[in-house]
Design a protein around this nucleic acid. Structure first.
Lengths: 181, 181
DNA sequence: CCTGTGCATTCATCTAGATTAATAAATTCA
DNA sequence: TGAATTTATTAATCTAGATGAATGCACAGG
């Protein structure tokens, strides 16, 4: 069991909230302790910097959970927007209430493992951002999240990788050329 | 209580291991589930890329814990070196044994909070790497870890920020110039 | 069924930061 | 203590990827 839904005792009949593609669920500046479990569909979280440029922090497809742990942990207004890339069904829960769920030791250990895994993923991401070329980061992304590229516009993948859509386009052109020669 | 040592029931009289400055405690390629609690001194973890270049992943001073959660979580040989920037006293423990400690629910929740905090820090780091200039990253680093810069050589700070020592030197020169004009 | 708005791509140009190299200052250690 | 090895700094050049602009496409909404 490494599914947050099970760990947190979600009622499997709990009514998910439906959101249409494009809906912004959370806006930077809000103070919230909500988290979003994706039952169906695809969400993304992102910041907008002072030049108005978007930076995708993460994608969340079925079974994933998405939230701004950073601002929640330090009780600050969130810096992350969260919106729907597809029509989605979401279970919304309050992270504060997790303490009151009276989870078993086993569940807590599982929850723990999940958090550790998240740390592992972020560790990898930091190291990649520091040491790998855009080209390598893209290849790694394709391997790591093979289902995402087909569901997400290029510009968002570029943003996740920390490059411009133009740069990603060039990288892709190079790859095509390589395989057709 | 947000100190791993307390949470994990460390015997406060437990004998720490002493390491001399420069000692490499862990090498890339090893398979291990060890973690290092810094009782005194300063450690760092880093990768070495295929061009032989070091990339500092994190620093750990007193009270911090350092380990390669990524490779441990996925049972792969570690990619991180860990070494001592100062003479250090370290409590070594096996992350696998945490499950057997029979921690109370409260301790597990605390441990949870600690992991969440770590996620928060990494989230911030990823966003900074994607969206902020070297200049801004350096300023943020100084604010966030005011004690580290005095204990760590410039080149390692540069490496942590994802830039070359030369670039950091230039940034610092600019700052000095700004304040002296 | 159009029509407009956003998206992907290509190309020309620009720039933050890398690389290389040379010098001076600080540390290490025999 | 003094030679050898790191480290920090400055400056000249180079480059990955950014920026800006133009073109053709896709498709969302009237």
């Amino acid at each position: 069991m490494d599914n947050l839904k099970d760990i947190l005792n979600f009622d499997s009949n709990a009514k998910p909230t439906s959101f249409k593609k494009g809906t912004i669920i959370q806006r930077a500046g809000e103070i919230t302790s909500l988290a979003y479990y994706v039952k169906k569909g695809l969400l993304r979280s992102y910041t907008i910097d002072d030049k108005g440029k978007e930076h995708v922090f993460m994608f969340a497809s079925e079974g994933w959970i998405i939230a701004d742990l950073e601002s929640q942990e330090f009780n600050r207004p969130t810096e992350l927007f969260i919106d729907c890339i597809e029509n989605s069904e979401i279970l919304i829960f309050d992270r504060k209430s997790v303490v009151n769920l009276n989870l078993s030791n086993e569940q807590l250990l599982d929850y723990n493992r999940l958090l550790t895994r998240r740390i592992a993923v972020l560790q990898k991401r930091v190291i990649m951002l520091m040491s790998a070329s855009a080209q390598n980061r893209y290849n790694f992304f394709l391997e790591m999240y093979p289902d995402i590229p087909n569901r997400v516009p290029q510009r968002m993948i570029a943003s996740y990788l920390g490059i411009t859509p133009q740069a990603l386009s060039t990288i892709r052109a190079k790859i095509v050329k390589k395989y057709s020669s």
